[in-house]
Amino acid sequence: MITLLTGMLATAVLAGGVLALAALGEVLAERVGVTNLGVEGLMALGAVTAVMTVSSVSSPWVGLLVAGLVGAAGGMVFAFGAVVMRANQVLCGLATTFMGLGLSTALGHNYAGQPVTTTFGHVSVPVLSSIPVIGPALFGQNILIVPIYVLLPALVHFVMFRTRHGLNMRAVGENPAAADAAGIPVMAMRFWYVTLGGAMAGLAGGYLTLTYVPVWSEGMVAGRGWIALALVIFAGYRPVIVTLSALLFGLVTALSFVGQAHNWPIDPAFLNMLPYLGTMAFIIVPVVVWHRMRRVMAAPAALAQPYYRDVR
């Protein structure tokens, strides 16, 4: 039982980390009022470029860096359309996903199916990793787990809710006209946070192929970008809650793994549906059960609305 629980939590932490990174990036973009539906495509690009990089440079850090840079570049392309040109955000996002998925498959053609040998290896933090159940999961896997689950969300939370800059940032997402009148550079704010969100989607893709699933194949992102988008809504656009829900979500994924490993009498296809069914339940059940949730977890008021200075 203990080994089962330990194994499940370890898988959950790994699987959830991918989502946590991507979803935290999307929180940044949505808090300044931009929905980036391109996360799925940017993750695919990050995943494939990380694999391509480590096949010639044997350092996972360089692979992760390249994945992040590629994600940032993709985020900039999206931001050019959705923020600078003020085109429809849903369309630009879908277009980014199409481009990302198509390009990543074309780029990764020669790398498909080959196991990645350069990955983030196991790191055991001396005392902490011997804590039963949670120790091996949190401190006995790879070096990125603590940054992803603790440092980054804490940093984003602090900046967003405890600094003047964070207040400005939220103002841009709630009421860009007022923010503009107060002298906050709305466009620059949106552009750079969307780019940062794209970089984190790229990192999430790189993290996917450098730790959790060390092989590139077409369609391997498998909707994780969309799940990350759903988590952002579920978590009410809050950085700490989004990270926790990514972990919760990782548990759902781990459940399907455990089921397959222990030969539960359920077809793997149905176990593989669990993450998607779980996400559906995550975003529907809370609003139905607890009506006040809709107000408490409301989206930024100017979400998905382009800002025109001269049109009121």
């Binding site: 369309l91 277009a95 980014t96 996903t97 199409f98 481009m99 998925l101 198509g102 498959t105 074309a106």
Partner: peptide, 12 residues
């Protein structure tokens, strides 16, 4: 998959 990328570019 190139077709998907091309579609995305045109849509963008």
């Amino acid at each position: 998959s190139v077709v998907l990328a091309i579609t995305g570019l045109i849509l963008f």
